[in-house]
Structures are given as structure tokens and as C-alpha cells.
Simulated scan of single mutants.
Amino acid sequence: MNLPNTITDIDFNFPNQTNVYKGKVRQVYSINDDLLVMVASDRLSAFDVVMPRGIPYKGQILNQIATQMMQATEDLVPNWLLASPDPNVAIGYQCEPFKVEMVIRGYMSGHAAREYKAGRRVLCGVPMPDGMKENDKFPEPIITPATKAEMGDHDEDISREDIISRGIVSEHDYEILEKYTRDLYKRGSQLAKKRGLILVDTKYEFGKTKDGKIVLIDEIHTPDSSRYFYAEGYQERQDKNEPQKQLSKEFVRQWLISHDFQGLEGQTLPEMDDDYILSVSERYIELYEKITGKEFEKSDTSDIKNRIESNVQDWFEANFM
């Protein structure tokens, strides 16, 4: 079996490059300390661990969903994006990121459900009602922030009060982040509903431009940052205490759990063979088509690095030279 090429260890040197930051999935290049070139790799992260093998087309899928969702929400919340000159690349304004991820949950799933099952009724300082079961809808969406981890570290839950008292974000700015988070989640839920989906939970990241404007950065409403359920049959499955049919990378987490891996010390990463890698790629393509309503067009993977360099160079020449 010949799998398409993937891009995992990215090492670019763009013109006027001043800095580079390597995240779990994306690599971000500063240009003239003014613009950012964000390259979405094919790396797969789960339980805050980067898997050793890339997933074909994953970076393209995440970048193209995020780009389309940025464009679909820019009337609500300003964002950093200028252009996407390559399937794996987004270019935008350099920002100072806030050191928190704004997680919003409309349903009691994932991490919230695990905490609830453990008997906890407060998450990030936010109370969760008694008498709920996994995947039930919250009376109102709750915001449960997390501190931004460096690569390889675990994000940590944190309350609104701690964020403000520790000076991580000022109260004034945090109120804006909360408003933007609720507005984006409402729009994301409306977009999902049109596709027969429920936006269960998601996270947003924000930064501040050099002129002090708060903008949305990074990815938005992708299967890596969000959890979706199929709307059809949702209530019936809840009534029968059955698992929900979902669109997210939870299927990867469940596969890892079934192979005794949850990112804990002493655990060994299971090997992903070609068949499994291909099945994950196909699942991501399915996610793209379901979330966007568009047919996925596979990019040329014969020489991804050269393709990206050429497309980025052409964009800069057309816009800044």
C-alpha cells in the first residue's frame, strides 16, 4: 500500500522570517515581526501527545475548515486571517496570544462528562446541575477555560476568577473573550444545524494585534478543536442511554484507550499501521465534507514542502513586492 505523502517535521525558511513557533499540529512563522505564516501539518495529537506518524490530508482539512469558518464568522468577531495561498497555509496578522483557551460546552460530554462521573459538580468554577447524564444538553452553554500548554504539556482547567486574579487576562479583556466565545458558539451551532449536526463543545483562541484589537486566531470549528453529534436520532439515543454518533477526533482517543494509552506516564504508544492511518485519513475527509457541505479536493502531495514554499512565495510577491 502506497500512502500519500504527509508533512510532519516542517522546516521552512521564508523570506524575511524572524521567528518560528512549533505547536502540536501547526508551525507558525513570523515575517518581519508583522505577519504570520501558519502551516498546518499532518501531525495527529491526542491526549496532548503527538503521534509518530502523520495522517494524509489532515493538515489541509484542518486549515480549510478553519479558513471557511473564519470567513463565516468575521461579521461577528474580527480575526487574524488575511489569506490562504496554499491548502495547508493561512497567512495573517501577528498577534500576542492570550494564554488561555476559551472552551465552551453546550452538552455534558468528553472532559466534562468524565469529571461529572467522578462526582464533581463544579468545572472551572462553573456549577453543573445535578441529575444529568452523559451527552445531555446544559440549560445554558458553560465556559470552562484552560491554560495554554507548551508542546507536550497538558492544558489545565482554570476558573474565570483565577484567570483574572492571577493577571493572566485583565477583567476588561476577559469580558470581551467571553462575549466573543458565546457569539461564535451560537453561530457555530447555527452552521452545524444546517448540516444536520450539533456543535457539542469547542474551543477558541484569541490574540491582541499590535494596535490593541482582540481577534480570533488559530483554528475554529474543526474536528480537532470541536465535538459534533449527528442531530438525527440524538434524543432517541439519549432516551435509550446509547452512545451518540459523533464527528470529532474522539474516535482516535477511543482507539488509543482500547490499546491502553491515555498519555499517562509509563504507557506505551500503540503502533498505527498503514490500514489504520488510511482509515483515519478517510474519517477526516468524511468530517470535512459533512461539516462544510463541500466535496473534498485532495491536494498534490508529491512534494508538499516545495508546493507550500512556492505558493507562499508567490503570495508575498503579489502582495508585498
Rank of each mutant, 00 (worst) to 15 (best):
K186S: 11
G167M: 09
I10S: 12
E250R: 04
V20E: 15
I257G: 07
R166Q: 14
Y93R: 04
L256D: 13
E156P: 14
W255I: 04
L62P: 04
V280P: 00
R227A: 07
Y29R: 15
K298M: 10
V39H: 10
V49N: 08
R53E: 13
E156L: 06
P243Q: 02
D260V: 12
T73R: 00
Q71N: 13
M51K: 10
Y107N: 08
S310W: 07
H259S: 03
I164D: 02
T18L: 15
D218L: 07
R26V: 05
H111Y: 12
Y21F: 04
E297L: 13
S159L: 15
G152P: 14
K249G: 05
K203I: 06
M132G: 05
Y228D: 06
M272G: 02
F98D: 00
E317M: 14
I142N: 02
D157F: 13
K24G: 13
K203H: 11
V49G: 09
K24Y: 06
L82M: 12
P87G: 08
S299W: 03
H259A: 05
R253P: 13
K179I: 01
E265K: 03
S30T: 13
D155N: 10
D274I: 01
K245C: 08
S84F: 03
Y93A: 06
F316P: 10
